[in-house]
């Protein structure tokens, strides 16, 4: 095993070009577990901790440009206004210690269906900017996940930034685990209302081979909200509408039975979370607020 320690982004890209098998390590929260438990022995470790760009976030007009290694704790503390869905998801990640280390880039790199950031990024409509010595490109989040723990990165590419539109409406994230903290998702659901485009987007975690959107549910809801003039009237959503949305969201799942939960439960729970999070976001929209933060506590 070799430890590559680039001092900056250009060096990191050069190292990755020279050693495409090199495994990037930033927060280490996935990779070090695999190394400690002898599940993986990469030929090269590519340490990204020294790459300053990855630790920063900024804004480009209506978007946040989020460095791949900005730790979840900072997303919770600094971005809950601009990216409320992602901040909420970040707050559910593992433990305070992990939130101090891990960032969205690692979640995307591992591309586990259980990654907590994914449903929020899907719902927000993020773009992942990846780069290699050959140049950079932006991959829409919808095209990023290509299989179980597989993503659209080429062997010589690294994740640099994630571009996420600033929220124009309420966003929520909810995840089921069998413990009240420090738990991997049995399944998860993210929702974002986009009043500017009068659309709704969603993301589902741990209920299909990859993180997915509930496309039929989104289409149904977007159409129903337009038809019923809900965006303008701010009326309460009829329970039947929320129920239909929930059912369609559950239908978007293609889950498996595993040690964390049954397929049937996952489908059921995604429906419950879809109904609830729609209720929370819509109530928040009606009240004209960006969504109250609850239980943020000391974070």
């Amino acid at each position: 095993m070799d430890f590559l320690r680039p001092a900056g982004w250009a060096e990191a890209l050069a190292a990755k070009a020279e050693h495409p098998a090199a495994v990037p390590i930033a927060g280490g929260t996935d990779l070090m577990v695999e190394i400690n438990f002898d599940h993986r022995r990469p030929e090269y470790l590519l340490d990204l901790n020294r790459v300053a760009e990855l630790q920063e976030w900024g804004t480009d007009g209506g978007s946040v440009r989020l460095g791949a290694s900005v730790p979840y704790a900072r997303i919770v503390a600094e971005l809950r206004g601009a990216l409320p869905g992602l901040a909420r998801a970040a707050h559910t990640v593992a433990s305070p210690q992990i939130r101090n280390r891990g960032g969205v880039g690692g979640n995307l790199g591992t591309a586990s269906p259980a990654g907590d950031a994914h449903p929020a990024l899907l719902a927000a409509g993020a773009e992942v900017e990846v780069e290699s010595v050959r140049g950079s490109r932006r991959i829409p989040i919808d095209e990023f996940f290509t299989g179980v723990k597989r993503n659209a990165l080429a062997p010589d590419e690294l994740i640099k930034w994630v571009h996420v539109k600033k929220a124009t409406g309420p966003q929520e994230f909810s995840k089921v685990g069998t413990r009240n903290a420090m738990v991997i998702a049995v399944c998860a659901f993210g929702i974002a209302l986009h009043p500017d485009t009068r659309t709704v987007r969603t993301g589902i975690g741990s209920a299909a081979p990859t993180p997915v959107r509930a496309a039929a549910a989104e289409e149904f809801l977007t159409a129903a909200l337009a038809e019923g003039n809900f965006w303008d009237s701010g009326r309460t959503l009829p329970p039947a509408l929320a129920a239909q949305f929930a059912e369609l969201a559950a239908g978007a799942c293609n889950p498996i039975d595993d040690v964390r939960g049954s397929a049937r439960y996952r489908r059921h729970a995604v429906g419950v979370m879809a109904r609830r999070t729609l209720g929370w976001t819509w109530e928040s929209y009606r009240r004209g607020t960006a969504g109250p933060t609850r239980g943020e506590g000391a974070a």
Binding site: F3, R5, I25, G27, G28, T29, M32, V33, I35, N36, F37, L45, D47, N49, A94, S95, P96, Q97, I98, N100, R101, M182
Partner: peptide, 26 residues
């Protein structure tokens, strides 16, 4: 040694982290 218990918590540049998940070279 998998970041699930916090028993190895240390401060790294002032921030509490699990030392088991920091590669020595980092």
């Amino acid at each position: 040694e998998q970041g699930e218990c916090g028993s190895c918590t240390v401060r790294l540049d002032g921030v509490p982290v699990c030392a088991c998940l920091v590669a020595a070279g980092q």
